[in-house]
Amino acid sequence: MINSILFVVLALLALSSAITAVLAKNLVTSILAAGFVSLLASVIYLLLSAPDVAMTEAAIGSGLSTIIFFYVLNKVRRSGRHD
């Protein structure tokens, strides 16, 4: 029962942060929201009895891909200022 409530809450949170990620005007907000979707997804995998997938998603989806987005954002902003 608790698990069902948790699942629904996580799903609603994931949907709202996915909408934020797609629609937000600020790119930083958008990238962070996309990383948050991945983090919530990893908890959902745990509820779906997939601990292996949860570990991968937590490390890759919300860690590495967010940092790559920020590197690119930083690079794009920097070169936009100089030229």
Partner: peptide, 17 residues
């Protein structure tokens, strides 16, 4: 246990981050 090459590799890369 849960885990393996992909997860461990990703964790090492996170340490590098």
């Amino acid at each position: 246990s849960p885990g393996g090459g992909f997860q461990g590799g990703a964790i090492i890369a996170s340490g590098l981050v």
